Every structure is written in structure tokens, then in C-alpha cells.
Computed example of a mutant assay.
Amino acid sequence: MKSNYTSLILPPLIVFALFLFLWQGCVELFSLPPYLVPSPYRVLKIASENYSTLLIATLLTAAAAVGGFLLSFAVGTSVALIFSQSKIVRQSFYPYAIFLQTVPIVAIAPLIVVWFGNGFFSVILVSFIISLFPIITNGTMGLLAVKKEWLDLFLINNASASQILFKLRFPNAVPYLFTGAKISSGLSVIGAIVGEFFAGYGAKYHGLGYLITFTSGQMKTDYLFAAVFMSTVLGLVFFGGVSLLSSYVLQRRGVANEPS
């Protein structure tokens, strides 16, 4: 078990160390100005100097992303359950689910601010919208991907529609839902940051999206790099958390792998 964790963690750490070394080398070799490309040391220094601000911003963005992700998972699963029960409903409304994926979120976010105002709720809505589609599509796929012989067995035993749905279709869809959840976990962070570009939170506290916009406009590139790095870490934490939960649940259910 220890060797497995080492094999998973060590290669990315080596790549990251090489990346930092290459980054520092390019800055020194080409004498890049700090306002264009700051060195890793400058980024680390500004991050340590503004640790509390970055931490509060990360926690605010994380809270909005969690809210958007949980809302998208609940709504997406419910919609997938409805889609699995009616072909007419699925064919009628599925194109509108695709609409959520095809329309740029930067075009929707200003409308949400107009309708619901600035603040935390609007940021959650943006995160929810951008992370909803993978749950719907993967959940619907899993609910419909039931083996015919299993369905026939339920029908022969006079199973009701609700029994077929919750004892056959839904358990079969769990791996698919986790696949969608892993995709949505990263999208929820992106949605929260984009929402903060437009909605913000207030005069006192700001999320990572606001810090990215502010530092970019002020040409504080080292601070910008620090905010982007925290955004990346947040996305990785979200994805890793959902992946660990997925592995735990699927192992408990005796499922070896998620659907590809």
C-alpha cells in the first residue's frame, strides 16, 4: 500500500520540481522582468506576505464551489432520473441541457448578476450552471445502460417502476455519476472563479476570482501567479477528494473500475 501511494505521488512531485527548476532557469537566462514572468521565489515571497488574504480568498472560492457542486449533483441526478423514465421528456429537454454546456459562462454570468445581484449566491449559481451538464449526461447514461437480462428478470418478478428505478437502474448508474462528479468538481471551481470575476463578495472579503482580476489590472504579476497557483491547488483538492470518495464507495460496492 505504501509503495502504491509513493508511485502515485512521487512522479508528479518530480515533474513539479523540474518545472520550478526550468521556470527559475528561464527567468535568469533570459533576464525576464518580474512584471512579465516573476521567479518562483518572488511568487513564494508575495504569497507568504499575503498569506491571510490568499487563505480567506481560497476558502471563499472553495465554499462557493462546494455549494455549486453539491447543487449540480442534486439537480443533475434528479434530472437524470426523470430523463431515464420518459423517452419523450428526454428528447424534449436534453437539448436544453446541452445549451448549458455550449453557451459561454462569461455570457451568462453578467445576466445572473443583473437578476440576483452581487454576492455569494450569484457565485454559487454560476458554479452550479457550469458544473451541471456532466452530472446529467453521465447519470442518464448510467440509468439507461442496464443489461436487458437484468431488466427482464425484474419484469418477470412483477417489479414496480420505482423498484426498477431505485433497485436496478440507480445502483447501475452510481459509477457513471461519480465519473460525472469528477468532471464537475473541477468545473465547479472554474465556475466559482468566473462568477467572482463579475459578482464578487463585498468591500472587505474577496475570492480568488477577484484577486486574479485585481492583480492583473495592477500588473502585480507575482501576486497574480500566487492567486492562480491557489486556484490550481483548489481544483486539484476538489478532484482528489471526489476521486477518493469514488474509489471508496465503488470498492465498498465491489465495483472494480468506473465506466470509461
Score class of each variant (00 low, 15 high):
197 F>L: 04
142 G>T: 03
240 G>K: 07
68 G>P: 03
8 L>H: 11
84 S>V: 05
77 T>W: 07
152 D>W: 00
31 S>W: 13
47 A>E: 03
137 T>D: 13
184 S>G: 13
229 F>W: 08
122 S>Q: 02
225 F>E: 11
2 K>A: 15
14 I>W: 05
40 P>S: 02
250 L>F: 05
213 T>V: 15
135 I>E: 03
113 V>S: 08
164 I>D: 15
121 F>T: 08
167 K>V: 01
54 L>A: 02
85 Q>G: 08
17 A>V: 12
12 P>R: 04
177 L>C: 03
25 G>Q: 03
232 T>D: 06
42 R>E: 15
189 V>G: 03
62 A>I: 00
147 K>R: 12
85 Q>I: 00
154 F>C: 10
242 V>N: 03
182 K>E: 10
101 Q>C: 14
180 G>Y: 09
252 R>W: 14
144 L>I: 10
193 I>L: 13
87 K>Q: 14
45 K>Y: 12
82 I>C: 12
190 I>F: 14
51 Y>I: 06
218 Q>Y: 07
72 S>D: 06
115 W>D: 05
207 G>V: 04
184 S>Q: 10
167 K>D: 11
231 S>W: 04
68 G>E: 01
136 I>N: 02
96 Y>V: 12
79 V>F: 02
95 P>F: 12
145 A>I: 08
176 Y>S: 08
90 R>H: 11
116 F>D: 09
225 F>Q: 08
36 L>G: 00
150 W>R: 06
27 V>N: 05
134 P>W: 03
152 D>A: 08
16 F>W: 14
127 S>M: 02
130 I>N: 11
248 Y>T: 08
115 W>H: 04
130 I>L: 15
71 L>W: 06
177 L>R: 00
76 G>P: 04
175 P>I: 10
221 T>W: 12
136 I>Y: 10
233 V>K: 05
244 L>D: 07
85 Q>R: 04
19 F>K: 03
210 Y>W: 15
190 I>H: 08
59 L>F: 11
